[in-house]
Amino acid sequence: MIEVRHISKSFDGEQVLNDISVSFEQGKTNLIIGKSGSGKTVLLKCIIGLHEVDQGEIYYSGNNFTAMNIMDKKKVRQKFGMLFQGGALFDSLTVEENVRFKLDMFTGMTTREKQERVDFCLKRVNLENKNDLYPAELSGGMKKRVAIARAIVLNPRYLFCDEPNSGLDPQTAILIDKLIIEITEEFNMTTIVNTHDINSVMEMGDKVVYIDKGKKWWEGSNLDILNTDNEELNNFLFANKMVRQLKNINDSRQ
């Protein structure tokens, strides 16, 4: 479980996050949603410690991450898996080397054990026989899947995904969403996904937190979201004409 307590963050005097408190539950897919520039990426980067917060605390399984020294933070981070927006695969390494990287760095496994683990993770994301390809030779969806395989290779307790569907076609985006849901349940992780994709919200939002102008405006599940009367959230989610019509049909049925 991850708890965020009253965190604030500003850059050059501009307040980007303002007194945000929220908790993300284990074994569930937690979504942070909001418009571009709403502060959701800054919030995610504060949670994982890439940005220092100005105020407030972040707790991982009850331990205050913000108060930890560098060495303790490194130990916690070894339990992280992260899926970046562009994949952030290491260009100079092959698919196999990218996935094996954490095993080489943090374990004393034998070459055979590592190979088995890498093969398992690549199979899990449906990417077999691509071991020797370089990131430049992969499609956007394949890069995301390799990044997921790299993220889960050490059985992380926490998975963070920054806009996992950006740049993907709707079908591939749904595949990635399903994969995130499946591995969250399989590894019983606390997963936080940053997105502004309505499909993802409906597909995997066990818990949804809506951020705008650096403040938390709403939280609930993807089922609650259809019936919310929060105007800001409705304007954000149902900006698309077709989706708005579907919501109207849903409202009239009720």
């Binding site: 890439l50 981070r77 260009d91 990287f101 954490k102």
Partner: peptide, 17 residues
């Protein structure tokens, strides 16, 4: 520089490296 702008350095930091 390319590793920085493509978040590869952030990826290393997140791994605890």
């Amino acid at each position: 520089g390319t590793m920085r702008v493509t978040e590869q350095i952030d990826a290393l930091e997140i791994m605890g490296i």
